[in-house]
């Protein structure tokens, strides 16, 4: 396949960026999207030009490190992560625009690499269960009904990639946060801190430059793990109950 790529290049956090056009030839449909960028980078290096910086690690769709805006869609046209997208999803001769996640809360570091540490700060605020090592009761002492365990699991699948924020017109982090609130809130172990958790997380989220949620649903649509929109309902319900002291 032959493709035209328009890639966001930006030397550093404060530098001005621009879209630069590159042609790539002889791309195999069996390549992953990131392998296609590897091929481009090898060529740039050979030409004495600096390679395009982008993040990836597991390349298996589980670590959440990768994430590109591909022709305007977070993680591209398929419901998967950027690293699991393959070139057979594109047409020969196509022009592909490749940009970093765009959100105030995710400042650009270089080229396609952004800083998502705001997500860690949200977890620091309350995305945990306070149990010190060694103080846990026997695992079978806590029974979890299967429906709760299953819903907790679905929410726990979030990989923290940030596509939900990138896809949201408000750059809101509600899906990410709702996933954690739901994961821990469905479990008996998560009850004692439930009210504190949701309030602290939301306060941190709002302070980090994420926007509010207006129920558009782009987040869930873009989410490679299919985190359902109803985790945001759970989050809102928890927040209401926490504020009115009804937990």
């Amino acid at each position: 396949m032959n493709l035209t790529l328009k890639i966001w290049r930006q030397d550093g956090p404060k530098a001005r960026g621009e879209l630069v056009t590159y042609q790539v030839a002889d791309i195999s449909p069996d390549m992953s999207f990131l392998e296609m960028l590897d091929v481009l980078n090898e060529r740039l290096n050979a030409e004495g030009k600096e390679p395009v910086a982008f993040d990836s690690d597991c390349r298996e769709g589980i670590c959440g490190m990768c994430g590109l805006m591909i022709s305007g869609e977070a993680h591209g046209p398929e419901k998967t992560t950027t690293c699991q997208l393959h070139m057979r999803s594109f047409k020969d001769g196509e022009t592909i625009t490749i940009e970093p996640w765009r959100a105030d809360a995710f400042p650009i570091i270089r080229d396609l690499v952004v800083d998502r540490s705001a997500f860690d700060r949200i977890i620091q605020a309350g995305g945990f269960i306070s149990v010190n090592t060694g103080s846990a009761p026997d695992a079978e002492a806590i029974l979890v009904p299967k429906p709760n365990a299953d819903r907790a699991f679905v929410a726990a699948e979030c990989i923290g990639c940030g596509a939900c924020v990138a896809a949201c017109p408000n750059a809101s982090g509600m899906l990410f946060m709702g996933a954690k609130v739901t994961h821990l809130g469905e479990l008996p172990q998560g009850q004692p801190e439930r009210a504190m958790r949701v309030q602290a997380m939301v306060a941190t989220h709002d302070g980090a430059g994420f926007g509010g949620c207006t129920n558009i649903g782009e987040c869930s649509h873009a989410c490679p793990k299919g985190i359902p929109l109803d985790v945001i309902s759970t989050l809102n319900a928890d927040l209401r109950k926490a504020k009115s002291g009804r937990f």
């Binding site: 269960i129 103080s135 695992a139 979890v144 299967k146 365990a149 994961h183 172990q189 998560g190």
Partner: peptide
């Protein structure tokens, strides 16, 4: 396993 369950790790259940 005890520690992980207490933390909220969603292991498979019956």
């Amino acid at each position: 396993i005890d520690q992980c369950v207490a933390q909220g790790v969603p292991f498979a259940r019956e």
